[in-house]
């Protein structure tokens, strides 16, 4: 069974309709496809029972949409939007949100500040559209006082975000949804399952015939998958800058921004794919590696994980 991942960071599909499709594939696998978090999503199940697959698909899609609605910074009613509108007032959050903020806090600490959920304000001056339009250094510098997770007052269940600062769960949310969906499906469904949300994926076990074959597309072309990986269980995630970069005087500015300087990390790989125990763990390792720039490979070597870097 071959799964082809969408090119990481690819063009966004149209806004999803809350529906999903069930389609049989070769080798006794049933695929459930839907769109969530601006990504094509699929759940692959080893089963002959189309009804059970449909039921699992419904659970998967509803969970993905629930997480998207709850944590998307684009949804005005999401908890993230509520926190971002709080203007310095404390917001009491539920346990799930608290767990995500805790996770973000730990990642901030582990990466010594390189991973920072408050760095999204840099989008106000950085638009990675392939052009040569770099922002003014002063405009970037002016945003720096609004960045820094250490400025956030966080003690579960209460978060206080200084006025004008913002948080988002980019780099966590989709990976979290993949692991959550796999957990829900595996709890109700006996066979092998693989969840793939736009290239970030996780599997509970290998199908009876052979491990899952995962193809990672070459990020800068629409050609055949460049990498073909085998995955039995665990998570696999890719971070890349395929279409999201600026090019000026021969220097490529990728979309991975250093929250300390507000400027893109130099010499990042085009893409980093990491295999780990879960999708969140794989995704965070890939993100950490990108933030290391030219040191991405040596960083991943040190972590003792399976990885594939493309430069």
């Amino acid at each position: 069974m071959r799964v082809v991942c969408a090119a990481p960071g690819g063009a966004s599909p149209p806004p999803h309709a809350p529906e999903f499709e069930v389609a049989p594939r070769e080798g006794g696998i049933v695929a459930v496809c839907f769109v969530a978090m601006a990504s094509p999503c699929e759940l692959l199940l080893e089963t002959a029972d189309a009804h059970a697959a449909g039921e699992a698909g419904r659970i998967a899609a509803q969970e993905a949409w629930r997480i998207e609605a709850k944590f998307s910074r684009y949804r005005p009613e999401s908890i993230v939007s509520v926190i971002n509108r709080s203007r310095g007032h404390a917001v009491v959050v539920d346990g799930e949100t608290a767990a995500l903020i805790d996770y973000a806090a730990q990642c901030h600490e582990l990466s010594e500040g390189l991973f920072d959920i408050t760095s999204g304000v840099l989008r106000r001056c950085w638009t990675f559209d392939g052009s040569d339009r770099l922002p003014e250094a002063a405009a970037v510098a002016a945003l720096l006082p609004l960045i820094g997770f250490e400025k956030v007052r966080w003690q579960a269940p209460r978060i206080t975000l200084p006025a004008e600062m913002e948080i988002d769960f980019g780099g966590i949310g989709k990976e979290y949804a993949v692991d959550r969906v796999l957990g829900l499906v595996a709890a109700r469904f006996a066979g092998a399952a693989l969840v793939n949300f736009g290239g970030d994926l996780a599997a509970n076990c290998a199908p009876s015939a052979a491990p899952w074959q995962v193809g990672v597309k070459r990020p800068d072309t629409e050609r055949e998958a460049r990498l073909l990986l085998e995955l039995s269980r665990g998570g696999l995630a890719t971070s890349g800058d395929t279409y999201r970069f600026l090019l000026r005087e021969g220097v490529r500015y990728g979309h991975i921004l250093d929250p300390r300087s507000g400027w893109p990390v130099r010499d990042t790989p085009r893409s980093v794919t990491v295999a780990a125990a879960s999708c969140v763990e794989a995704g965070m390792l890939a993100t950490f590696a990108m933030l290391q720039g030219s040191g991405a490979e040596s960083f991943l070597e040190e972590q003792g994980v399976r990885y594939w870097c493309l430069r």
């Binding site: 346990g95 767990a99 805790d102 125990a277 763990e281 003792g304």
Partner: peptide, 20 residues
């Protein structure tokens, strides 16, 4: 670092235990 991340990821996916 990886051990720390593994622990954090497990805590996140094991529900809301840590948050509480």
């Amino acid at each position: 670092l990886h051990l720390g991340l593994m622990a954090a990821s497990c805590a996140l996916l094991s529900g809301t235990a840590r948050a509480q």
